[in-house]
Design a protein around this nucleic acid. Structure first.
Lengths: 221, 221
DNA sequence: ACAAAAGTGTTAATTTTACACCCATGA
DNA sequence: TCATGGGTGTAAAATTAACACTTTTGT
């Protein structure tokens, strides 16, 4: 009832796919922001900010995402809430979201003054307990992509099965048999062929697909 | 940085197994508390309370559990955080946990003045969005019991495979083949036979098992 | 014609499911 | 000895995984 004086913040782990700087392989990246005040001043941290009184939790995450990257998310899901007592002099409860950004959007993004994109598996030491949070988000993404069709949120609405498979391979960092992947993907019945093909390749033109829009797309949770 | 004046509360969905009042079948139950002030005064709601400044999130959930039921939880996991702007005149962000209580503990519990245990699938209309939260917790429990050995948290440390199976059957509300269940359970290698048997049954005495204690028991998340 | 990826077919291995049947105990 | 669940065996069915092979394009 009475005010507890606990600060509420919302942070977001933002995932996007980009080529790895050395290997060139498509890899998971995420943006970090440099802290410009105490505590942990100068350290890299997850983008976030205080929850505004008239802002939904998810809206807060979306705003942070737009503010720090200039991008919009194609998928957003709550990850976990952290609120250990010892986090800092002023007690903070952080509600953390994770988000996916489409590759065609992220291609045009550039690092800002205090924003830097990092390869997800090569993160520097972060402020607070953000290392653990990133690891937790990575686990969640990798687990979820294996049983849920979230891979599509990295892609444009129309895509080939090879592109969809490439997303899985990049996220899970392992090769996947194209023939079996195709059958599994089509067996879900969530994939609809558009009828058209992707031309301009130096091989047989692949068919284009799109995902069926389901009602659960609005309430992922 | 500045105080936002948002109230922080922690609620808990507490599950226990008891016989169904009419069918006698072992069924999922959960305790509800009657609200004694506005908003939603008189309505049933999930047990919970404001987060104290020096209290961990999980500790808050545990305290609520003990306060309202007089019991302790054998398992506690964060469920979700809710914080829509429209929840009430005073904005509240609720961090919700779910908990399991052992059957031998709950047997001795009695309903208090403003506490009532209800069959989980026959919940009355609740205050706030608590109906949805209960449903979400039920989904989570039913999903998790199929891939994680949480069923044991309803049981005493030593139990028979039939008792373990009965927990699965009660939670999922469906019959499970005893032979196949046994093999699956033993295949996980998390089950250790104690060497002793349960006597006093009017049939072949079943072997007693206990679960291996793993390090992940401390950080379920 | 050749390379390269799209797409199809086939089989082995593994996991899941169904159910028959023997075992050990109390009544 | 009978009823009752404990516990084992086994085979069909479904799923997963591995890989050969055919198709269609650009060069």
């Amino acid at each position: 009832m009475t005010d507890q004086g606990i600060e509420l913040a919302v942070s977001t782990v933002i995932f996007a796919l980009r080529p790895h700087p050395t290997t060139g392989e498509t890899t998971l990246w995420l943006p970090l922001v440099r802290r410009i005040r105490q505590p942990h001043e100068g350290r890299w941290a997850l983008p976030g900010g205080p929850l505004l009184p008239d802002e939904d939790l998810a809206a807060s995450a979306r705003h942070t995402l737009e503010r720090t990257t200039g991008l919009s998310s194609s998928y957003l899901e709550q990850l976990y809430s952290f609120g250990a007592v010892d986090r800092s002099p002023q007690r903070v409860v952080s509600i953390v979201y994770w988000a996916l950004v489409r590759s065609d959007e992220v291609a045009g993004a550039v690092d800002g003054e205090n924003v830097q994109w990092c390869v997800a598996d090569e993160i520097p030491e972060l402020a607070f307990d953000h290392d653990g949070i990133v690891q937790y988000a990575l686990n969640r993404l990798r687990a979820k992509i294996t049983y849920s069709p979230i891979a599509r949120f990295f892609l444009s609405p129309e895509f080939t099965l090879a592109e969809l498979r490439a997303v899985h391979e990049a996220v899970l960092v392992k090769r996947i048999d194209p023939a079996n992947f195709r059958r599994q993907a089509l067996a879900t019945k969530t994939l609809v062929p558009t009828g058209s093909q992707l031309t301009g390749t130096s091989h047989r033109p692949p068919a284009l697909y799109r995902f069926q829009v389901t009602s659960s797309d609005r309430n992922p949770r």
